[in-house]
Computed example of a mutant assay.
Amino acid sequence: MAPRLPPLPQVLDLLPDAVCIVDEGGHLLFVNAAFERLLGHAADAVRGRILFDFIHPDDRATSQRQAEALMQGGGERHFRNRYLHRQGHVVELLWSAHWLPEQRLRIGVAREIGELRRAERELEHHANHDPLTGLANRRRLQHALRNALAEAAESGGQVSLLYLDLTGFKQVNDRGGHEAGDRVLCEVAKRLQQGVRQIDLVARIGGDEFVVLLAGCDAGHARGMAQQLRQQLRVPCTLRDGPLQMDASIGTATFPADGRTPEALLAHADQAMYASRRPR
């Protein structure tokens, strides 16, 4: 006697990925056991309900557009969205979907990608942030500055930069070693972030050099911000062998008067910073 194949639903229940079959109105006709494992909803409880009801509210419109495009012969067969687990937390899924026009059904297979997304976010953070201070790095600054200049050019607004270099930082390392230097850099980062607006961007671009991006600020406001930040930095920092008096040289540059490209603005602010060191 030839072996009999098990029922298809029984086979699908063995899969680690969720399988859903929905009609063209989005009603769930079938889900396998992995659907309940991933989202906490039993098959009997969801059958006949609208699949989109389980999607995170922020992703529903995009997901519905994807489904409509798929049924019209277009769209993306592979896409990501977020669902709400029965207990309320968010589950991120990667879908592979297919439309069966003769049966008027959509079949979707979903894999949970929370660990992948966390790894992607961690890599993205490392690619855009200074590992010591947690501030934006040069790469992120360049990206933010290009966007700020494009918006200012379109709206007729202004953008300012502060280019900051710590005074006597070499003596900090000579006095207390690299550990002391790292502590000072982290303290400077903290004070800079506390001294600017939430919409401003503070970046460490190397060594003891920092840049502050001030969107929507004219030259007068930039000079005032530079003075304010310098005063905050001059408050003594406590090291193991006693207090340290810090200071900084700060140069400013403003779009469009001092440059219209990221490179031109950074160069102007850098030159202004060095000029501020010269005795008057």
Rank of each mutant, 00 (worst) to 15 (best):
R37V: 07
H27K: 12
D58T: 07
F54H: 06
P57G: 09
R47P: 05
E36L: 06
I55M: 13
G26N: 07
A43V: 07
A33L: 13
I55C: 14
P57S: 06
H56E: 11
L51A: 14
A45T: 13
A45M: 06
D53A: 12
V46A: 03
R47F: 03
F52H: 11
R49N: 04
F35L: 00
F54D: 06
V31N: 02
L28P: 02
F30G: 04
D53I: 01
G25L: 11
V46L: 02
F30T: 03
A34W: 04
H27S: 13
V46F: 09
P57R: 05
H41L: 00
G40C: 04
V31I: 10
E36P: 02
L38K: 04
N32A: 08
R37C: 03
A42T: 07
G25Q: 15
N32E: 00
L51C: 11
L51K: 09
D44K: 05
R47W: 01
F35S: 03
E36C: 12
E36Q: 14
L29K: 02
P57Y: 07
F30I: 01
V46C: 03
G40M: 08
I55K: 04
F30Y: 15
H41S: 03
A43M: 05
G26S: 10
F35K: 00
L39F: 10
R49P: 09
N32K: 10
H56V: 02
N32F: 08
I55W: 01
G48A: 07
H56R: 06
A33W: 01
P57F: 11
R47C: 14
A45C: 04
R47H: 09
L29P: 08
F35G: 01
G48L: 07
R47L: 08
H56A: 15
D44G: 06
A45K: 08
N32Q: 05
L39Y: 03
D58H: 11
H27V: 00
A45D: 13
N32T: 01
G40T: 07
L51R: 15
L51V: 08
N32D: 01
D53H: 14
H41R: 14
L28I: 15
H56D: 10
G40P: 02
L29M: 12
A34S: 06
I55E: 13
F30V: 05
L51G: 13
H41F: 15
A45V: 10
I50E: 14
N32H: 10
G26W: 13
L51W: 14
I55G: 05
A34Q: 05
A33H: 13
L38D: 12
D53Y: 10
D53R: 07
L39M: 12
D44C: 05
F30M: 14
A45S: 15
A33C: 09
R37H: 15
D53E: 15
D44N: 10
F52I: 05
E36H: 11
L29I: 06
A43Y: 10
G26E: 05
G25V: 00
D44T: 10
V46Q: 03
A45F: 09
